[in-house]
């Protein structure tokens, strides 16, 4: 690989070697291509909200292959063990394939929960972290109390309080349009609110520590040319701090993808919820949860890839990890 650099001339490590990059890229293209086609197909081409969606890949050939391999394995005695395993793979596929359309629908909600909550959480986290570092005593105390309360209690408890313990659920249910057509129902909105609040607290911690790692002379210099304190933070400190925060922040994104599975407990039909309900109906626990695990893995790896790119795009010589020389 020739040495790559970002738009601002920061060298980027070469990444994976060519063939692994090709295989990885192919797998991502396959996963996301299938997922997006599945979504479009199920919402617009053959809308069928009641369920019972046909997988794109028929189960028959996998069953047949399983049968053939099993009988082959039988006839070969001890030598047939590898064929026995291979038969298991086809049996696994045959067991998993019928659930894929439902898992794709679940994955949609998982993506929505994660992306919307991390984005809204970020909007809250920036002022929270700035209040922690630069606020007066009162503001600092409020921000600290919020983050410690949220980080110190279980996310599931927070979701239950929001969903069962407040009027939020009823309030959202009565908002016109909620639960109609493409608009998700009240449980999804409550989950988004819960994840947003929770994620804001964690994100605020990552950004706070990044803020304190920006040299104090930066704000002094900003003040010295006549910028106010808030402007100095806005134009000088935050642009640097947010770059420092990217690696830690990426962690929070990855956590949230997986924590979003807790929404199942307040009846949100996300990926984990779909998996569990099908598994309970079919008793195919292994097939379902391994497949769901692969879905989460693909989502997490995608998030990592995106964040690596974000880090490269925003890299500036002398700032953050990739800028170190």
């Amino acid at each position: 690989m020739s040495e790559r650099t970002t738009a601002r001339g920061v060298p980027v490590d070469g990444g994976l070697p060519g063939w692994r990059r090709a295989v990885g890229g192919g797998a991502f293209a396959l996963f996301w291509g299938w997922l997006v086609v599945r979504w479009i197909h199920d919402w617009f081409i053959v809308p069928n909200p009641a369920g019972d969606r046909t997988p794109f890949v028929p189960v028959g050939p996998f069953d047949a292959a399983n049968e053939v391999l099993l009988s082959l394995a039988d006839s070969l005695g001890v030598l047939g063990v590898p064929f026995d395993w291979l038969a298991g793979v086809f049996a696994f596929a045959a067991g998993a394939i019928p659930s894929l359309p439902a898992l794709a629908q679940g994955a949609w909600l998982t993506v929505v929960l994660t992306v919307v909550s991390i984005a809204l959480g970020f909007v809250l986290a920036v002022p929270l972290s700035v209040a922690r570092v630069y606020g007066g005593l009162g503001l600092r105390w409020v921000a600290l109390s919020f983050t410690e309360l949220i980080r110190g209690t279980p996310l599931l408890a927070q979701l239950f309080v929001l969903y069962y313990g407040t009027n939020l659920t009823v309030f959202i249910r009565n908002v016109p349009g909620v639960g109609m057509g493409m608009v998700p129902d009240q449980a999804v909105w409550v989950a988004i609110i819960g994840f947003t609040i929770n994620s804001a607290a964690y994100q605020a911690e990552y950004i706070r520590s990044a803020l304190t790692s920006v040299h104090s002379g930066q704000l002094t210099a900003a003040r010295a040319i006549g910028l106010g304190k808030v402007e100095g933070i806005r134009y000088v400190v935050l642009p640097q701090a947010l770059r420092y925060a990217i690696p830690g922040w990426s962690n929070e994104l990855i956590y949230l993808i997986k924590y979003s599975s807790l929404a199942t407990f307040i009846t949100v039909g996300e990926l984990f919820n779909q998996t569990e309900s099908i598994a309970n109906d079919t008793y195919r626990y292994t097939e379902l949860f391994v497949t769901a695990g692969l879905f989460y893995l693909a989502l997490v790896l995608s998030a990592s890839l995106v964040m690596n790119s974000v880090e490269d795009w925003t890299a500036i010589p002398g700032i953050g990890q990739s800028g170190e020389r």
């Binding site: 040299h215 002379g217 930066q218 002094t220 210099a221 900003a222 003040r223 010295a224 040319i225 006549g226 910028l227 402007e231 134009y235 000088v236 642009p239 640097q240 770059r243 500036i316 002398g318 700032i319």
Partner: peptide, 30 residues
Amino acid sequence: RRNVGMVFQDFNLFAHLTARKNVTLGLRKV
């Protein structure tokens, strides 16, 4: 502070901005 410029011992250039943008920031925002 618009009328009194300051030059620092450890420079304190805005680390995320090019030399030109270091100079333009005050002109634009102040």
